[in-house]
């Protein structure tokens, strides 16, 4: 029983982080039609910024907030400085075909990832360093019995839950949230409603940057920080996004949690070296049974 609870709680905490990564990917995919491979590179970079601040005797929380803000700015910068100029040159011969228009931004995101990794290596050296957490990673005790959940798990779950509630309120209750959903669904009708779709898209990149930056802050106390640490997180997050349905925000979050459980249960009941096989099998199974994703919708074409 105790090992079940341990797997469950640690799966929830890990799943919460995957949910953030997956949410970030889906936000950009829906808004801009780009799979952003640089996403966790951006998160790695902002986590380094937080780490530097903490080393220079700033408090954890001020570093936390600065990292999130940098995440938003970096996300917006990627769109404004690279993606927008790349996709808006209508006259370029390269961009005449649809396949090139969709491929070029993805290749560019790989380029950005490379640049960010190199830059982090130059600025902060390549070796691993630890990253602190504001709560102790010990199991919570009631009296003398150890509960199956650690304080750190609880912290991660709490922060992600708050972030998801805020995101939900933003998308369902605010005008800007409506504008973002509308421009992802039908950019032409949205433009004809007087909404600046380009700016809305940049905001999507910024929110995605914030979400992944948060994921970076929450995962590194366990994994340590190096320019390559977060690569794995991108793979799992991407799998979660595909499992949930690339077009659905709720699906991406759900996919994240499901993957968290898959990984955590395999870890506890099988062996850690089987985790990647399990992810692959799970992905294939999900694609086979529900290729559009758990909450994704099939593309309907009117004739």
């Amino acid at each position: 029983m105790n090992s079940f609870l341990t797997a469950f709680f640690s799966g929830t905490a890990q799943g919460a982080i995957y949910a953030l990564v997956s949410l970030g990917l889906v936000l950009v995919w829906r808004g801009a039609g780009v799979v952003n491979f640089a996403q966790m590179g951006q998160a790695m970079f902002t986590t380094y910024i937080a780490s530097q601040m903490i080393q220079h005797n700033n408090s954890y929380w001020s570093a936390f907030v600065v990292a999130l803000i940098c995440g938003a700015l970096l996300g917006a910068l990627v769109d404004l400085a690279i993606m927008r100029p790349l996709t808006s040159r209508k006259n370029s011969q390269l961009l005449n075909s649809q396949s090139m228009r969709t491929t070029i931004p993805v290749i560019a995101s790989l380029g950005i990832l490379g640049v960010l990794k190199a830059l982090a290596g130059i600025l902060w050296a390549g070796e691993e360093r630890g990253f602190p957490s504001p709560v102790a990673p010990n199991a919570i005790k009631i009296g003398s019995t150890n509960l199956a959940i650690t304080g750190f798990d609880l912290f991660v779950i709490g922060v992600v839950f708050a972030a998801l509630v805020l995101t939900t309120i933003f998308f369902t209750k605010t005008g800007m949230g409506l504008a973002m959903r509308a421009s992802a669904l039908n950019p032409e009708v949205t433009r004809l409603s007087g909404i600046r779709v380009g700016s809305v898209r940049t905001l999507g990149w910024a929110i995605s940057g914030t979400a992944s930056s948060l994921a970076g802050l929450l995962v590194t106390p366990r994994t340590n920080l190096s320019p390559n640490t977060l690569d794995l997180l991108l793979i799992v997050g991407f799998t979660a996004a595909v499992v949930g349905g690339l077009s659905s925000l709720a699906g991406s979050v759900l996919g994240g949690f499901i993957l968290g459980y898959v990984i955590s249960f395999v870890n506890v009941y099988s062996a850690p070296e089987n985790v990647f096989i399990a992810i692959l099998v799970f992905l294939l199974l999900a694609l086979f049974l529900r290729p559009q994703g758990i909450l994704g919708s099939k593309e309907v074409r009117r004739v």
Binding site: L178, R181, L185, V189, T190
Partner: peptide, 21 residues
């Protein structure tokens, strides 16, 4: 009949006036 079919009727109408909010 260009509307955004995944949004509600009220949201489609809201969208049209959003920039004047």
């Amino acid at each position: 009949h260009a509307v955004i079919s995944q949004l509600s009727v009220a949201e489609n109408i809201e969208l049209g006036g959003l920039f004047r909010k």
